[in-house]
Design a protein around this nucleic acid. Structure first.
Lengths: 348, 348
DNA sequence: TTGAAAGCGATACCAA
DNA sequence: TTGGTATCGCTTTCAA
């Protein structure tokens, strides 16, 4: 089922078959041979060998990689799906496919290098859940393979990122609590290895500063972005002689943990303690009380990231000088019940 | 940066460079040239052209496709991530990559055919959220490209499926309610286009039959696997002159909708009406009351599906006759609060 | 121990 | 309107 076989059966040359099948030099081939070749190709269910085609056409791979470490938090969250959705929407229009790469934490660097970067299967990559010190970043740079870091915000030279503005998002959340009259606002932070977690910490402090509220390390805990972490953090906060009146949890699952800890203690949210989370995971609206949280436009992050990557691939081909992009998308505070805002409105 | 260039710089032939780089005919190449070639290749950051390599080696693509229709329910759920995790675990060991294909609903068939099947980028495919009448199924068969349907259970000749046993799962759920004393058990079904939904209906009826409870179409509603569907269905159920004492919702999001409808009516779960769902989505345990539901081993479904696919690819290469596999994994009833079982235990 | 040369399966230019 | 042929980058006999 090669071009040649069809040529033989049709009694024409391979060149002619190629012309017919690719519909080039349209008028330069007689309708009779055209139809004959077409008929034979169809009856033989001819499929061109893609390797041979791309070898000769030097067509770049029509795929981008989506790299997500196996043990990433992102993997467990709904982020993943939304990001993919966005990336798919952006790449589909360009006729690009997405190839998934899930390097295992313990995989040797070479293996990763082999599978993704050097195989030549992709024209670029989207990196999710990647850490600042990830070895794949210099690897990509070395290979001059375009890539975009998604949902992290690194300040690395030449590295493009698309993320939400976590600083402003966190700031909005804390400002909201301050506006509701809170001044003793505890903070449950995420792991320092995450740029998102760091940025949210910055936002927390910024809001405090703005309001002239002194930062009090006493009421700050690390919850590692996990529910148990949030629960433990809240427990320890509840053991304080002077309880905070509000808690800003750096993500929703920690907020859920905190919520449970508070309930277990017999206190109520938001009356005794108000809670605001971050992420707006699907569960947030179903909690009781429904969680006030910072919504991230994750779909859009995925979409913009893919668009940025596509642009970079394009630019890298046209030899243009590509500047690193830093795109920060706006978050949106979703006011539900856990912060007590609705109650506050009623009272006022 | 081709083989030839290295050969030129090293003053040897392309054949020698190939031997060195591929580490073949080990002793047949002098250590001196070996090192020289290696050094030059490294310094030039040589990467073989993958197209050329696989053209000559006739090596089959080391990737399988993961096909998931853009508008699939699966896409929105946590299923997706778990299936991918499983598939990744299974394929990683075989050195296979996963390429994502997300055909748009409105995409012309040819396009899909082109992108996935005929490009030769994949050695097989995993089909998720695929409907029985999906045109890609005959397309795959035509191309003799191995594929496995994941998380659906089709009775199509020659088609392999890996799924949970939804009939038994649903049966278990309803049996449990019957054991708790319920006899008027409403059913909120999923869309008939889904084999899962159909199987769960079958399980519902089977459990009823076993217990000699007559099937009553009066208390069966279609909730379309969506939360609003579940809510509406429950509303309409609550308008009945004689209320059901329990509801089996065909999936968890409909159960959540039902739960809300019941609460809104001022009734309590499980005291007034018991609820059992299906899926065990992450949210289930966080609901109040926590949802009793049927847990699906989704990770394992993904994993087994990929393993099945790999085996089929292997067999298809060795010209063995491949029988279609139908693998049904066991579900597990997770008893929480919404069915009232714990309360019942206390009372007994 | 090395190299020349014949493919792999297509495309595309130049003649005819 | 067609065919011959070089070429893409690499692997792999077969000779030397």
């Amino acid at each position: 089922m090669s071009l040649r076989e069809i040529a033989r059966k049709a009694g024409v040359s391979a060149a002619t078959v190629s012309r017919v099948l690719n519909d080039v030099d349209r008028q330069k081939v007689s309708e009779a041979t055209r139809l004959k070749v077409l008929a034979i190709a169809r009856s033989m269910r001819y499929q061109p060998n893609p390797q041979a085609v791309s070898l000769v056409t030097r067509r770049p791979p029509n795929a981008v990689g989506l790299v997500i470490p196996y043990n990433s938090h992102v993997f467990e969250s709904f982020y993943f799906t939304e990001i993919i959705r966005g990336a798919v929407d952006a790449t589909n229009t360009g006729g690009m496919n997405i190839t998934l790469f899930v390097p295992r934490k313990d995989a040797p660097r070479d293996e990763f290098h082999d599978t993704l970067i050097s195989t030549g299967h992709v024209s670029g990559a989207l990196l999710i859940g990647t850490r600042l010190d990830d070895p794949s970043i210099p690897a990509f740079q070395e290979m001059r393979l375009p890539f975009v870091v998604v949902n992290s915000n690194f300040d690395l030279p030449g590295v493009s990122c698309v993320d939400c503005d976590n600083i402003i998002g966190a700031c909005d959340a804390v400002r909201h609590l301050i506006r509701l009259g809170h001044r003793r606002i505890a903070f449950i932070s995420g792991p320092d290895t995450s740029s998102n977690a760091r940025d949210r910490s910055v936002g927390y402090r910024r809001a405090l500063d703005e309001a002239g509220i002194p930062f009090d390390p006493e009421i700050v805990r690390d919850g590692a972005f996990e529910e148990t972490g949030g629960r433990e953090a809240m427990k320890s906060l509840l053991a304080l002689p002077e309880l905070p009146t509000a808690v800003f949890a750096s993500n929703d699952v920690m907020a859920i943990g905190a919520l449970r800890a508070i309930k277990k203690e017999g206190l109520t949210v938001p009356d005794d303690i108000a809670i605001v989370g971050f992420d707006d995971i699907p569960m947030a609206q179903h909690l009781e009380p429904a969680l006030t949280t910072v919504h991230q436009p994750i779909y859009l992050v995925g979409r913009r990231a893919a668009e940025t990557l596509l642009a970079q691939i394009h630019e890298s081909r046209s030899e243009e000088i590509t500047a690193a992009t830093h795109l920060l998308l706006r978050t949106r505070l979703v006011i539900r019940e856990s912060c007590g805002a609705r109650r506050a409105e009623v009272n006022s």
